[in-house]
Nucleic acid binder design. Structure first.
Length: 507
RNA sequence: CGGGGUGUAGCACAGCCUGGUAGUGCGCCUGGUUUGGGACCAGGAAGUCGUAGGUUCGAAUCCUAUCACCCCGACCA
């Protein structure tokens, strides 16, 4: 056998985590950088993950009473100016459209050049988020309390001119969903904010196998223009935190900015209370960093574009026909099954390639279950089954019918196993910290390498900034979990505190 | 936008110091032998050496500028 790396991906996570991440994205054929800086080409395997995420979340939004709509990509500049904090927050990362036509000119070499022309009287920005333009629509749509609540979601692309793009994690253009709702009362809006955060947390735990902490952002980390920002935070394998989704209570800020008013039950004209909430293609990056290993991607079955790959083993030409027939027969049986609400996706990989090459390709792509079927299996009525959450050589030989019977439970077992593994990882690197010395040591000491520090806090925004400057550590959230509610002393200021909160380095 | 690094075939790289017109491994194509594991043999295709300018008889190599990408930081989903 030729000499091979021990692992399919190099460098390994241990050796160089950022490089490893990029190699996984490439090896799994998820996406690539495009010629436009900061923008990515999402390839079929990566887009397949997004389609599943989209489809499953969309159902959850529908189940909670929301409807989809679509709003323009281009937003009049003046709209962004309407809400001061919002404008300030997004001003530094907006792409601006200033012209609406091109004119052909010849340069010195006689080559045709296209030059922008037709300057717009008012520039447009490409949406970095849609609060303002959706607000303008809501203002038209809402007249009476009977029009409320207004529960709208949009699946769209947005653009934020990022300094340092990374595939999926931070790209200039990304795909997301943004929910926007308007309510009659503050309490209803608060409830909506909370409810949708819960939807996100459920989705991430059950569909993405990501243990997440739900909580509230500190004032420093709040969405520009929001009264309150709730979030779900996950830990990935370099022990950094990543914000996987946010839900904002916007108060009446945007209602006032966009003049969204209604006549209430008592006849008075009032401003609505709004919320917004979103998750993006960043979740794909989060799934990669949370679950992938040194052999490539490891997909949570629920979002795997293909659940099961069947690899026919054809030693001699005479075996081709019976083996392929058996493989297709097995595929047909599996395809009749439903995993949660989705039909099983099964692929028979009958490409004329060396078996080992094909096998490793699917390992790198993270397919949950691989099944080999060859002449010896036909005789015995069995198959060889390999799970992606186990080693590449950890093969189980099962009677074919048993395998079909167990397929769904095996997928669920993989799904649950990934969750448990990620949870155990997070628990291992979540540490209660009570002194400033211990806190600084936790994040500075090479050996401890950090993680989540849960600590009492009563500091100011300036104190928070100072910690960020020293350690690149920020408050990830004020967790809702009641186990963190306890009396104590702030590790930084020594003042009394009634809650431990989560600190970490983050993406 | 600051600090560091890298641009040579699809991918990973060597060659650059000491200029002479491009190489290795993997991948790809063809034929054959193979096939329960990223196999082997033979043949083959593929690079304006990031771009532009300069020095030189001659530049991947030296000089200048510029662009892109990566890492760290600031900003952020």
């Amino acid at each position: 056998m030729a000499k091979q790396n021990k692992t399919a991906i190099s460098p390994t996570r241990e050796e160089d985590f950022p490089q490893w991440y990029q190699q996984v994205v490439r090896a799994a054929d998820l996406a690539e950088n495009s010629e436009v800086r900061g923008c990515m080409v999402i390839k079929p395997w990566g887009y397949g993950m997004w389609e599943r995420i989209q489809q499953q979340m969309d159902q959850m939004f529908k189940d909670t009473g929301h409807e989809n709509a679509y709003f323009p990509l281009l937003i009049p500049l003046s709209y962004l100016e309407k809400e001061a904090e919002h404008a300030e927050g997004f001003a530094t990362e907006c792409a601006v459209v200033t012209h609406h036509r091109l004119e052909a000119e010849k340069d010195d070499d006689g080559k045709t050049k296209l030059v922008p022309s037709g300057k717009l009287t008012e520039p447009f920005i490409i949406r970095p988020t849609s609060e303002t333009i959706i607000g303008a629509a809501f203002a038209r749509w809402v007249e009476s309390y009977r029009d409320l609540p207004l529960l709208i979601n949009q699946w769209a692309n947005v653009m934020r001119w990022e300094m340092r793009p990374r595939l999926f994690l931070r790209t200039a253009e990304f795909l997301w969903q943004e929910g926007h709702t308007a309510h009659e009362t503050k309490d209803e809006a608060l409830e909506e904010t909370d409810k949708m955060l819960g939807v996100y947390a459920t989705f991430m735990r059950e569909h993405l196998a990501l243990p997440v902490i739900t909580g509230r952002k500190s004032e420093n980390e709040r969405f520009p223009g929001a009264e309150d920002t709730l979030c779900v935070e996950a830990m990935v394998q370099d022990r950094k935190a990543i914000q996987a989704g946010t839900s904002h209570f916007l108060g009446q800020n945007f209602a006032k900015a966009s003049n969204i008013t209604f006549q209430g039950r008592g006849g008075d004209v009032e401003h609505v209370w709004t919320t917004s909430w979103g998750v993006s293609t960043r979740m794909i990056g989060t799934v990669i960093m949370a679950h992938a290993d040194d052999d490539g991607l490891v997909l949570p079955p629920r979002i795997a574009p293909t659940h099961i790959v069947i690899l026919p083993v054809i030693p001699k030409e005479q075996h081709r026909e019976p083996v392929l027939a058996a493989a297709n027969d097995l595929a047909a049986k599996l395809k009749a099954l439903r995993f949660h609400d989705d039909r099983l996706t099964v692929k028979v990989d009958d490409r004329d390639l060396n078996g080992g090459v094909k096998n490793w390709e699917w390992i790198k792509k993270g397919v949950p279950i691989r099944v080999e079927i060859g002449p010896r299996d036909l005789e015995k009525g069995s198959v060889a089954v390999v799970r992606r959450d186990r080693g590449p050589k950890d093969k189980a030989f099962l009677p074919t019918d048993d395998f079909v019977d167990q397929a769904l439970s095996t997928l669920q077992e993989i799904q649950d196993g990934l969750y448990k593994r990620a949870l155990a990882f997070r628990e291992e690197y979540t540490v209660s910290i009570d002194t400033k010395e211990a806190f600084y040591d936790f994040f500075q000491n090479e050996k401890s390498a950090g993680g989540f520090a849960v600590a009492h806090w009563a500091g100011t925004n300036e104190d928070e900034d100072a910690i960020k400057k020293d350690l690149q550590v920020t408050i990830r959230c004020l967790p809702f979990d009641e186990r963190y509610d306890e009396e104590g002393t702030c590790f930084y200021t020594g003042k009394p505190s009634s809650k431990r909160i989560v600190f970490a380095k983050s993406y």
